[in-house]
Structure formats: C-alpha cells, structure tokens
C-alpha cells in the first residue's frame, strides 16, 4: 500500500507542494530494463527541513559516475512523459559543461521549491542527467503550447542559473520525445 503523504512537522516551514526524489540509472547489465523499471522513488517530503534531510543524504550529482539521473517531481507526478500531468507538456533542456551539475541542480531545485518561477501549477519537476561528456539539466512543465509560460520559465532559468550567455537552452515537447523515443 502506498505510504501516507508526508506532512510538515512542528516548527517546520511547509512547501507549496509535496515533492518526491527519484533516481534512475541505466545499468550496464540489464539493458532491456524499461525506463519505468529503472525509476526508483527515494523519498517524499512536505517541508523545507524535510527536503534538507533528504538532500544531505543523497550523493551530489557532480560526484556520480555513469548514466544516472536524479528527478525531483511534485508528489503525484511520475517523471515520465506518459504521466497525465506531463502528456501535454515539455521541458527546457540546458546542456552543462562537466563540473557545473551540482551547483546548477541545487540552484534549480531551490528555485522550484521556493515557487520562484511564478507560473502557478505549471511546473511538474526537474531532472539532472549525468552523462559521460556533458550533464543535462531539465525543467518540465504541463503545457508545452503555452508560450507565455515557457518564456517566463526560460527567463527565470537564465536568472537563477547565471550561466554563460552561449549556454545551449532548448525546449522539447514530450510528444516529440515520445515520437523519437529520445529525451534530448
């Protein structure tokens, strides 16, 4: 049976939403395992303090090796294109030079938890994908066709990540990802 949703403890600072930390790793051994089978829920939280209790016990993205992803999604949304909340959505994809993943991941999730994107319910979650030659940060939102929202998200991403102006940022709808069965 699913665990009851977490609640903020006494004296803790509640978040606007509950969130879940997920982890996925493409294992060398079992290449046939589906994306869904590789996706593991690490834990959920409802307050700032509960977030830090999880975050401080999880290896930093920059210290990971191999083909690994961290996902931080609102509770009730699975980090999958097919999830109800994602099926009409898309994501901003930011390609990072090696060495930037930990700082950018932390800045992005703190902005998401603090509701800094100012787009109401639109944000679904964030992903950091550790790969061999570069790392990829992405932020998922519900409505890919809403240009005002996706532009506002882009501008906030630029402000909070403070990356060089020539950083590659692109927007990809999950419909396109499903079509070519590729995330990036």
């Amino acid at each position: 049976p699913p665990r009851p949703p977490p609640k903020p403890g006494p004296g803790e600072n509640p978040l606007q939403y509950n969130y879940g930390f997920w982890y996925s790793r493409k294992s060398q051994g079992n290449k046939s395992a589906s994306y869904d089978q590789n996706l593991k829920l690490i834990g959920t939280f409802a307050s700032v303090e509960q977030f830090w209790r999880h975050y401080c016990h999880i290896a930093r993205p920059g210290d990971l090796t191999g083909h690994t992803d961290y996902h931080l999604f609102k509770e009730g949304i699975r980090p999958m294109w097919e999830d109800n909340a994602n099926k009409n959505g898309g994501k901003w994809i930011i390609r990072l030079k090696k060495g930037l993943a930990s700082r950018c991941w932390e800045n992005l999730i703190l902005a998401m938890l603090g509701e800094q994107f100012m787009v109401g319910e639109e944000i679904c979650g964030a992903v950091i994908s550790i790969r061999y030659s570069e790392d990829i940060l992405s932020l998922w939102n519900r409505t890919a066709s809403d240009g005002v929202t996706t532009s506002r998200i882009r501008d906030t991403l630029k402000r909070i990540l403070n990356l060089p102006p020539n950083t590659i940022m692109e927007y990809k709808t999950h419909g396109d990802s499903l079509k070519d069965n590729s995330s990036f």
Binding site: E12, P14, Q16, N107
Partner: peptide, 21 residues
C-alpha cells in the same frame, strides 16, 4: 489561497536548522 514563496537565502539558512538534521 496565497502561495508559499521562499528565497534561496532563506532556504539555505534552514539547512543548518536542528530540524533539518
């Protein structure tokens, strides 16, 4: 209802709270 906003600095301060250990 009103939304719950937190600035980055406030979230970082909470990191050292005993409740976050």
């Amino acid at each position: 209802g009103s939304r719950i906003f937190y600035e980055r600095n406030f979230l970082m301060q909470c990191r050292s709270s005993p409740l976050a250990k």
